[in-house]
């Protein structure tokens, strides 16, 4: 009683043909297999692909796009991020797992350290892109009635994607602002408790040498390339207006830059503590800082909020 039917043998060949298309972007057979599984699972749940033929064609086209290094997230149109399912569109950066990791951790710390669920919090997310950080915080802090979250980006594509992602995940009450953080930064009406930001942090040099092909060809340069400017902007523009900050970094130099600026300033160094958090892969990933004593009856005890978050300088 044969259990491998001729048609499944053919299916196997088909799989291999598809896998070969995935290999350049995925690099290993194992990862190609995983991506193939995700592609076929997600496409087969789409209603309009209701015949085998249509489905096979769609899967083939997806693999072909991947062969041209189009990111899987743009092909499938989404990326899960913590408890959220985010829409991904060409022109807006795809959320990374490193960002998911630290922002989820941050949300948990905020929950744990808040005095009660009436506590007022003001959180700003600069360079919001898909809105991933702002929306995840909003979602994870839904028990808190008085969290005020603002998401900001310079790109119109990002702005409309943030709104779309709010609708998709049933999230309300996040202010979305279109602004240029570097040249025309908006003034928040009140003191910001936590400023989060994942700015473009790849230097020109690193963009050429250390950035993968799919990122280079298909993700927006505007979202990627930057050196110290956003960290400089943090020191010059934001520090007086905030109680704490969490900035993603691509290189330890960026953290050192901010840290040195603070300790070399006789006023700032009495007020601010800074630290660096590594990601699960061991790379320095987050620069954070907080006022040693808060300001304006702040709502958090920041040294507790960031206790063991990373390593203090």
């Amino acid at each position: 009683m044969p259990r491998i039917s001729p048609s499944s043998v053919r299916a196997c060949n088909r799989v291999n043909r598809f896998l070969r298309l995935l290999l350049p972007a995925c690099r290993t057979v194992e990862r190609s297999n995983l991506e193939f599984k995700w592609i076929s699972n997600e496409l087969s749940s789409l209603e309009h692909l209701n015949t085998n033929r249509k489905l096979r064609e769609a899967i083939y086209n997806a693999c072909l796009q991947r062969f041209r290094y189009l990111p899987l997230q743009y092909i499938l149109g989404s990326q899960p991020f913590g408890s959220l399912e985010l829409v991904c569109r060409k022109g807006v950066l795809i959320p990374r797992w490193e960002t998911e990791e630290w922002s989820y951790e941050l949300a948990h710390r905020i929950r744990k350290n808040a005095t009660n669920n009436k506590q007022k919090m003001v959180i700003w997310d600069l360079c919001s892109g898909s809105g991933c950080i702002a929306l995840l915080l909003k979602q994870e802090l839904q028990a808190f009635k008085d969290v005020n979250i603002t998401a900001l980006d310079i790109s119109q594509k990002a702005i409309s994607l943030i709104k779309r992602n709010m609708a998709r995940n049933g999230i309300k009450d996040v202010s979305v602002i279109s602004a240029d953080v570097l040249h025309n930064p908006p003034n928040p009406g009140s003191m910001i408790d936590i400023l989060v930001c994942n700015p473009p942090y790849i230097s020109e040099d690193s963009f050429v040498k250390e950035t993968s092909r799919s990122v280079k060809i298909h993700e927006p340069r505007l979202a990627l390339v930057g050196d110290k400017e956003f960290y400089q902007n943090l020191i010059e523009h934001w520090l007086p207006k905030i109680n704490s900050f969490v900035y993603e970094i691509g290189d330890i130099n960026q953290a050192d830059f901010v840290h040195n600026a603070i300790i070399n300033d006789t006023e700032l160094n009495t007020v601010w503590s800074t630290g660096v958090k590594r990601d699960a892969n061991g790379n320095p990933r987050v620069l954070y800082g907080f006022r040693k004593n808060g300001k304006n009856n702040t709502s958090f005890k920041y040294h507790e909020l960031f206790d063991n978050f990373g390593k203090l300088n």
């Binding site: 972007a25 995925c26 690099r27 990862r31 995983l34 991506e35 995700w38 990111p71 899987l72 997230q73 950066l93 795809i94 990374r96 797992w97 490193e98 960002t99 994942n198 473009p200 942090y201 790849i202 690193s206 250390e210 950035t211 993968s212 799919s214 990122v215 993700e219 979202a223 990627l224 993603e248 691509g250 290189d251 990601d279 699960a280 892969n281 790379n283 990933r285």
Partner: peptide, 21 residues
Amino acid sequence: RIDVMRASGKGGQHVNTTDSA
């Protein structure tokens, strides 16, 4: 101990493969 799929290189914005294992 939590190990993630070890990607060499800088990670973060530099890569966009789904390293979720």
